[in-house]
Amino acid sequence: MNFTQLRCFITVSDNLSFTIAARKLNFSQPAISKNINDLEKELKTQLLVRNPHQIALTTDGIYFYNVALNILKEKDAAIANIKNIHKEKSFRDIKIGLDYSPFESIFLADFLKGFEPTSFNFIINYLGNYVSQIANSKIDMALLSSDLVNNAVGISFNQLLSGKFLLMFNSNSKLHFKKIVNLDELKSYRVLVLFTDQTYPSLFKLNQLLYQKLEKKNIKAVDNYFLMYNYVLSTERVVAIIPNFAIDPTQKGISYRQLNYYDDFSYGLAYSSLRENDPLVKKITANLRQSIKFDF
């Protein structure tokens, strides 16, 4: 079975005519007939009823038509995707997925200065679920935590920053005198965590541990990092736990200390493995590393 046989069968089925199919595919009519006959022999069934004045699909033909159509669609989409990935990158939009944390809003401004205005444009895409979007070519790459791509097939990852969890607190808090903070020391505080589920394994695992060690009433899940800053700035009794790639080192009135908790994750650039040797990806990665000047 080959793609030519499938395309001949689909074209005949769509037009119910060998003559029209031959004209559309630029084949001879005998070539169309041979391809379909060979396909029927391999499948050991009749796909088309051939009468002098009418052509019709058999029951098997109707079933196989949908199968063949999906196969060709997948094949055509794969070819188009690969061509798109390897085509000339100049003067085209590069779509990058972001968490849009305070940290990213700081270094991205510096990062964008590293490119000539005429080279390409960045479209910042805040839709989430970036692994599937990269796989389906809806975005070109994404800045994210490595635990999101650990088991993803066909996705490469360049580490930009080693991950760690930090405690964020009001600078007037007595926690200012600590170098490392243990989870048990947070029992007297209102603790903010980022609302998440198991699609973000490292954050989810830490949140579950906090619910075990601290009273649930003292833990509050919030939707984004910016809300955390507002809460922490308002009182010394509120603290927040965030990854180091979500901090805002320029924010006055906020301090950070390392949390006595470890998980193996990092922050970096994810992209299709087909772009492994793409010079544009290498340039973007190099400029990102140069732009990230804070390492907590």
Rank of each mutant, 00 (worst) to 15 (best):
N125Q: 11
N125G: 03
N125T: 15
L127D: 08
N129Q: 10
Y130L: 06
Y130W: 08
S132I: 15
S132F: 14
S132Q: 15
I134T: 08
I134M: 09
A135L: 15
A135Q: 15
N136L: 15
S137G: 07
I139R: 07
I139E: 02
D140V: 13
D140E: 14
A142R: 11
S145P: 08
D147V: 12
D147C: 11
V149I: 14
N150A: 10
N150P: 02
N150W: 12
N151K: 13
N151F: 12
N151T: 13
V153F: 13
V153T: 13
G154S: 06
G154Q: 12
G154M: 05
S156L: 05
S156I: 08
N158M: 03
Q159S: 04
G163F: 14
K164S: 13
K164V: 11
F169V: 04
F169T: 04
F169E: 03
N170R: 02
S171A: 12
S171P: 01
S173N: 10
S173H: 05
S173G: 05
K174L: 06
K174Y: 07
K178W: 05
I180W: 03
D184K: 07
D184V: 04
L186M: 02
K187W: 00
Y189I: 00
V191C: 01
L192I: 14
V193E: 01
L194D: 03
F195E: 10
T196P: 02
D197C: 01
Q198A: 10
Q198W: 09
Q198D: 11
P201Q: 08
S202T: 15
S202F: 09
L203K: 13
F204N: 13
N207F: 00
N207H: 02
Q208E: 07
Q212A: 01
Q212R: 08
E215H: 07
K217N: 12
K217P: 02
